[in-house]
Nucleic acid binder design. Structure first.
Length: 892
RNA sequence: GGAAACGUAGCUCAGCUGGGAGAGCAUUCGGGUCACAUCCGAAAGGUCGCAGGUUCGAACCCUGUCGUUUCCACCA
């Protein structure tokens, strides 16, 4: 049989295999059809939509983790026989991309304005072409088995139609509206942003206490603020209704310092009596609360800021100053005018833009909003009713908290890169026309009859289109076969950091537009941090490029490393040593496979009767069989890390370190008498390796495919090989017990050899003594491998101690003892210490077990099988103890 | 202000519905064996943050407490 190359070289095999898969369209999913052409729903679908990566960047470790998890699930389900679709694509990432494109334009010596909207968009689309392909190619390096034939982009034609459709439908229902409301404004990016994009950063600031004199000269009222420059827009002072301290000043006018304008003192329940002075300056144009108060009291809204964060003409002498410069100047002027009472240091939360981290200014602007009140309830209900399940469940709380406290969603952005809002304004009367197409010539305004329309210049929040991703990619609003067959999708895999941005919006969007959930499960993962636990970030420069890891160690190693030893929803740290370990495991599999292939020089039967196999064969087959069950159960519960641990543990330890070593003498025995045993071993090796490779394939697709191609040359790929299923006929508990007994003996002997400094070259004889016929049979059967594994020159099995040297060391094992005549090698003091230690351990165990068994409560209430187990343990420990004591007695 | 998570071997983390504490790395010792030194064998290392409670039985469930982290929030 042709064998693998001597060295494992992922760099060589990974691109080659990926090319084969991709060119052969192995990842492609079709809607299955019956003979009459109807969709065949009897073939079950399994669908995942990729969280579309932004076209701004390149693959980072977070993508690597997210997509590895998805690929594991997809490949596993594909092998289970599902018709699997992993829907790929990218996101236009409105503001992030616009910023990048502007940077490029500036680097080219131009400005955005110079190019104009059309010229800018041309640049942006060129950017998209490059970076869209780049990031998808990076996903391919990772091994992602996406259906590339179906690749979508949030701004391609179909998806743009979906966006327009949703906008128009919601507008018609009154769920999208245009309003002059207070929004978060980023003065640096010069666009509105949603609440979700606003971070609250604790900052060290000041709390300025200011006197506002009463107009009638009867004194003053004291207010405090963290943003003194906003006083330029104050239109009232508010106190709590019924606050005795201010009862007689309500209704009075105060003079706004520096501005010299009279504003009223009003009452509003929003004011907290306990906080500060109990009196609040009200700036309706620059504070969300004040905005509401202003509406209730019909206060004037005075905007004092320009879009780029300077004081505007309403700011009098401060006009033209930067907001922070103005703050300084105003404080200085207040102090000079005797209005400043005192300044406190205060840590307070400042709203910042999540992209540029500059301080956001609340501003009143005409913007488009999605009304959340009707949408939120069904979205909460489906999660409460477990129709959409978060894994781990605790993230539901995050979701509920967000959904329940949601404000209307500001969806318009003052950007060019994105879906343009399909709204047209009559230039004569301001009437709004929302329409799929631009008003044609002759289209008259329904209100004033004019024909002068102008489209809204704004675009939509990037999350507005990604909210539709699970169904827009499948063709919605068209009722495509894809939509009816692959939707709702099965699981969404994403990080906890975008539950609010994306997951929540997909859920309410799907419910409203498709009348169905977008996905059944939401599998949440954490962040990949650096070795010190810090977030990987550009500014820190501590990011590790997955492509570099792939280049050095292979995608298989990276993938395995990312999912081992961590649980869903938890952050993890990136360690090079973990990658190395994963690569070492790959290398191990490579070499074990080479060894097996090397020995596979005979035609093996398709199936073998377990009765014609040896105990060791049945042991490993049974282990493998149970492993299939456990791994499948773990994957069902999205416990990817636990499943990976079990798999690698089985393959590395049980298969490589034990079974292969046990079987070597049989493989090397090419005599006619040894032939059946050799065939049995080879058959078992191949069977276990094939099953092991299959189970490993979702984790390590490349190496498993490569080995499988050598091992099963008649098949083209492992990708569609049937997933191993637990088979009761392959369950051999007796053999499992038998071999475990042998392993105990071997470990015991090795232990003694190490402690006694017995070098491998020293001859040792192993004598197994047991009064139990069956146990003697076990050791007789296993003598063939016991001898090499325990490095014994001779193994003999007997019923009693007859003929064994007095100085032989004794190793107690279940129902037997192993005696090794070491003669002069024995250090009696050390041996005695060893036995004493063992005795102490057994005493501890016995104490615990008999404590349990003498506890009436335990006997009365514990399940029968647990009690039985404890009794067996007691018997075992008692027997071992007797042996230890006997040995100690012999030593004197 | 509200909420959540974490605290287990020197380090980083697993540990499923409660029934004898695990992995990787690091450490110590031995090994050049014809699949693999990217290896093999052996060892050492933990009162599972602390205090209560529920239970026959708790790393796991409950309460409190200390410590760390994160998310959310329109109190100036």
């Amino acid at each position: 049989m042709q064998n693998l190359p001597t060295t494992y070289s992922p760099k060589d095999l990974e691109p080659r295999l990926y090319k084969k898969w991709e060119e052969g369209h192995y990842f492609h999913a079709e809607v299955p059809r019956k003979e009459n052409g109807e969709v065949d729903y009897s073939k079950k679908a399994f669908t995942i939509v990729i969280p579309p990566p932004n076209i701004t960047g390149q693959l980072h470790m977070g993508h690597a983790l997210d997509n590895t998890m998805q690929d594991i699930l997809i490949r596993w389900k594909r092998m289970q026989g599902f018709n699997t679709l992993w829907q790929p694509g990218t996101d236009h990432a409105a503001i992030a991309t616009e910023v990048k494109v502007i940077q490029k334009i500036i680097a080219d010596g131009h400005t955005k304005e110079e190019l104009g909207r059309e010229g800018f968009l041309k640049e942006a689309w060129a950017w998209k072409e490059t970076y869209h392909n780049r990031i998808l190619n990076q996903l391919k390096k990772l091994g992602a088995s996406c259906d590339w034939d179906r690749t979508r982009f949030t701004m391609d034609e179909g998806l743009s139609n979906a966006v327009q459709e949703v906008f128009i439908r919601l507008y018609d229902q009154g769920l999208i509206y245009r309003g002059n409301r207070i929004i978060n404004w980023c003065p640096v990016c010069q666009t509105s942003i949603s609440d979700a994009e606003t971070l609250h950063e604790e900052q060290q600031g000041h709390f300025w206490h200011i006197r506002y004199p009463y107009a009638d000269g009867t004194g003053y009222i004291e207010v405090a603020t963290t943003r003194p420059e906003t006083m330029l827009g104050d239109t009232a002072i508010a106190v709590h209704p019924g606050d005795e301290r201010y009862a007689d000043v309500v209704g009075k006018m105060v003079i706004l310092p520096l501005v010299n304008k009279e504003i009223p003192v009003i009452e509003d329940a929003y004011v907290d009596k306990e906080f500060g002075t109990g009196a609040v300056k009200i700036t309706p144009a620059h504070d969300p609360n004040d905005f509401e108060v202003g509406l209730r009291h019909n206060l004037e809204q005075i905007n004092v800021l320009t879009d780029d964060g300077h004081i505007n003409e309403n700011g009098g002498k401060y006009c033209g100053m930067d907001r922070y410069e103005a703050r300084k100047q105003i404080v200085a002027d207040l102090e000079e005018g005797g209005y400043l009472v005192r300044v406190e240091d205060m840590v307070h939360a400042v709203g910042t833009h999540d992209r540029c981290h500059s301080t956001v200014e609340p501003m009143i602007k005409p913007q488009w909003f999605v009304a959340m009140d009707k949408l939120r309830k069904p979205a909460i209900d489906v999660v409460r009713q477990d129709k959409v399940r978060f894994v781990p469940k605790r993230y539901e709380k995050m979701y509920f908290n967000w959904m329940e406290n949601l404000h209307d969603w500001c969806i318009s952005r003052q950007l060019w890169w994105g879906h343009r809002i399909p709204a047209y304004y009559c230039q004569e009367c301001g009437n709004i026309l929302v329409s799929r197409e631009a008003p044609k010539a002759g289209c008259k305004c329904g209100k004033c009859g004019a024909e002068n329309w102008k489209q809204d210049p704004d675009t939509l929040d990037t999350w507005f289109s990604s909210a539709l991703w699970p169904f827009s990619t499948l063709g919605w609003p068209e009722q495509t076969p894809e939509l009816s067959y692959f939707y709702p999708t099965d699981v969404l895999v994403t990080g906890y950091d975008i539950i609010t941005f994306w997951v929540s919006r997909m859920i309410f969007s799907a419910l409203e537009y498709t009348h169905d959930i977008p996905f059944k499960d939401v599998l949440i993962h954490g962040l990949v941090r650096d070795e010190q636990g810090r977030k990987m970030s550009k500014s820190l420069g501590n990011g590790i490029d997955p492509l570099e890891v792939i280049d050095q160690y292979g995608a298989d190693a990276l993938r395995l490393m990312l999912v081992t030893g961590n649980a869903a929803g938890n952050d993890m740290r990136f360690y090079w040593s973990k990658v190395e370990n994963a690569r070492n495991f790959a290398n191990k599999m490579w070499n074990a496979s080479r060894f097996i292939l090397m020995n596979l020089d005979e035609e093996l039967p398709e199936t073998m009767d377990p009765a014609s196999l040896e105990a060791a064969d049945r042991w490993i087959l049974s282990k493998c069989n149970n492993l299939a069950k456990e791994v499948t159960e773990n994957l069902d519960k999205y416990e990817l890390g636990v499943a990976a641990d079990k798999l690698t543990g089985f393959l590395w330890e049980e298969l490589c370190d034990w079974y292969i070593e046990m079987v070597k003498p049989r493989l090397y025995n090419k005599t006619p008498e040894g032939a059946p045993s050799r065939t049995a071993a080879l058959w078992t090796l191949k069977k276990v390796l094939v099953d092991g490779l299959k189970m490993l394939h979702p984790y390590m697709p490349f190496i498993t495919e490569e080995i499988y191609n050598y091992l099963v040359p008649e098949e083209d790929t492992i990708m569609y090989a049937p997933w191993p299923v637990y088979d009761e006929a392959m369950n051999f508990p007796a053999e499992e017990d038998e071999v475990e007994r042998m392993k105990e003996a071997i470990r015991g002997i090795r232990n003694i050899r190490t402690q006694m400094n017995v070098t491998p070259k020293t001859k040792t004889e192993v004598i197994v003594v047991s009064a139990d016929d069956q146990v003697r049979d076990i050791f007789a059967r296993g003598a063939g491998f016991l001898s090499p594994l325990a490095m014994a020159t001779r193994v003999s099995v007997q019923a009693d101690d007859a003929g064994i040297s007095e100085n032989a060391v004794t190793i107690p094992i279940r129902d037997a003892k192993v005696r090794i005549p070491l003669e002069e090698l024995v250090d009696f003091a050390a041996e005695k210490a060893r036995l004493e230690k063992e005795k102490k351990r057994l005493e501890g165990e016995l104490k615990r077990v008999s404590g349990k068994l003498s506890n009436q409560g335990f006997l009365a209430k514990a399940p029968a099988n647990v009690i039985e187990e404890e009794k067996e343990k007691q018997t075992k420990y008692q027997a071992l103890m007797a042996q230890v004591e006997e040995s100690l007695a012999r030593l004197g």
